[in-house]
Nucleic acid binder design. Sequence first.
DNA 1: GCCCAGGAGTGTG
DNA 2: CACACTCATGGG
Length: 282
Amino acid sequence: MELEIDPLDLDMTLGCGQTFRWRRAGDGSWSGPLGERLVTLRMDGGILYVSAKPGGEGVVEDVARHLRAEDDIDRIQLTLSKDRVLGQGIRRLRGLRIVKTDEWECLVSFALATYANIPRISRMIDSLATEYGRRIAPGTHEFPDHARLSKASVRDLRRLGLGYRADYVKGICDSVDAEGLNRMTRMDLTRLREGLKALPGVGDKVADCVSLFGFGRLEAFPIDVWMERALKRLYGQEGTYRRLREFAAERFGPFAGYAQEYMYMNERGMASGQACAFSEQR
DNA sequence: GCCCAGGAGTGTG
DNA sequence: CACACTCATGGG
């Protein structure tokens, strides 16, 4: 099956810590559980080729939603390129798209993401899926829904290597389910953040990640250690989370989430030797 | 061995 | 409100 989605860079989009269950194969294809299927994506000549096990209807639609195929990247880039720092540098990140993930999976995933690196976060989530999720294909399990994950005790979760995050996961299961999250979909960002932050293991940064990737709020602007460095280096901005968030909201507006992801990728790329795409503000 | 990681919670000034 | 400290663990 095919999906016209342009631009799209699978390596940038699926491997940068927005979502944690996609795996890259040697041929450049990416596979991961989406809904109740194991989906494989391959980009060739500007066309995305989609296959799934088991097959079925609605796969392409699920992929289109997950990759936010409706986002007008050119318009977003044009808007953000008016920022002198981002300028023309964001062009080379044109294929990076914000992903839309399941709210429940996103919430639990980013509660696990506190003070851990991306490979480890992926491993913890895989462990949860293997232990509590339904098997959907050989070697692949669905992320466990609320009912299934709620069967895990804190001791069980610690044995899976979650560390202190075991208490977060248990506390989240005790506090909210998919229906509770569904009620948050209509809230404005301020209320949504408040609702999420009321959950154990959810602070400013996790709330913003879940708002952006799980609830699709493109105006959300998560700030982690990489973003603190980027904001200081590129804009001379430092201070509390609140202060930095307000700076970003004013500077980047409704597409702050894309600005954040561009800056995040750039900052990490620099750490691994790539040149900086952006020009520092003087 | 060492440093760091898409931080949060709690207590203190 | 701002800072300091603790939390548990594995990847590079």
